[in-house]
């Protein structure tokens, strides 16, 4: 059985009257790259701060590497994290900042610092003071801090914020390497869902402090919708035509749009069918199912369920 790295059990958190987390439970297994998805203020950062003890736990329990809340100082030594914006000593160079982290973690090997610097691609900036780094470079430095002690579990809060496209690709490769070469388990959040989809093997959805769904990438691929979007003049008539032709499932999105939830249809034949039955076809788009779309639909369903 795969080892449970993190067991986040029935955790609630309030800031004044604001319920930041409401009975949130989820597990992360060894080797997972766990993508945490939620809107701003959903509770992603709060979860990460609770795990790393930057926020005191009041309700529920957290177990890290089998050690329980309040007593997992040793488990934290096996954990690396970058939460919110990366913090570094501005007047120290990249090299010196990493030396400080190395000393804090009792790391003697000089190679560890060289490895971390080359891992995040900051070789040319190692003598540059942290205050002179760009946002993307600071992000890389924060990542270097997190991976320097070779953690078994890595927590990354919006690690690709401020990175240019090539930086995003490099971070993606880096996370892949960490997960595959060092067997690092990763908990990651990002607003760029397409990116999160590429790196994660498991997803947890959080909305207004509630954990609404967890699924693996394979399950997500099955669930997320792909199909054909039709722009028509008369949705009722178009729906009737599709129904008669036994083209299912489909959903009416609005007065002019129908979404046919299958990608297996011949689009030429479909347009011919509609036109022949007197439906004016104004547009047809083949749509691949995306994480964004799945997320939007999931939130809509959750909000409707709450009403």
């Amino acid at each position: 059985m795969t080892e449970t790295i993190l067991d986040f059990n029935n955790v609630s958190k309030k800031f004044g009257r604001f319920q930041a987390l409401d009975s949130v439970s989820f597990e992360i297994k060894r080797g997972d790259v766990y993508g945490l998805i939620g809107e701003n203020g959903a509770g992603k950062t709060t979860i990460m701060k609770l795990i790393t003890k930057l926020s005191p736990l009041r309700h529920g329990s957290i177990s890290l590497f089998g050690e329980t809340t309040g007593h997992y100082q040793q488990a934290l030594k096996r954990t690396g994290a970058m939460i919110e914006s990366p913090a570094a000593f501005g007047n120290l160079t990249v090299d010196q900042n990493l030396k400080v982290i190395a000393k804090q973690n009792g790391i003697q090997s000089k190679n560890a610092i060289d490895d971390a610097i080359s891992f995040v691609g900051l070789e040319k900036k190692r003598k540059t003071k942290a205050k002179h780094l760009s946002l993307g470079q600071r992000q890389r430095l924060g990542l270097a801090f997190a991976i320097l002690p070779h953690p078994d579990f890595l927590i990354l809060d919006e690690p690709i914020n401020g990175l240019d496209p090539s930086g995003i690709i490099e971070i993606r490769k880096l996370l892949y390497k960490l997960n595959h070469e060092r067997q690092t388990t990763i908990l990651i959040s990002s607003h760029i869902l397409s990116e999160l989809y590429q790196v994660s093997t498991k997803f947890g959805f959080i909305h207004h402090g509630k954990f609404i769904k967890q699924l693996t990438k394979a399950e997500l691929d099955k669930e997320k919708q792909s199909g054909i979007r039709l722009e028509v003049n008369d949705v009722a008539k178009a729906a009737e035509v599709l129904d008669n032709a036994k083209i299912k499932p489909f959903s009416v999105s609005n007065n002019h749009s129908i979404f046919v939830q299958t990608n297996q249809l011949d689009t030429g034949k479909l347009s011919q069918l509609l036109i022949m039955n007197g439906v004016e076809l104004n547009g047809m788009t083949k749509q691949e199912g995306s994480l964004e779309q799945y997320y939007t639909t999931l939130l809509k369903q959750t909000d409707e369920g709450e009403k």
Partner: peptide, 8 residues
Amino acid sequence: KNTLISGI
């Protein structure tokens, strides 16, 4: 944050 996350 870096300091406290290091397990101290």
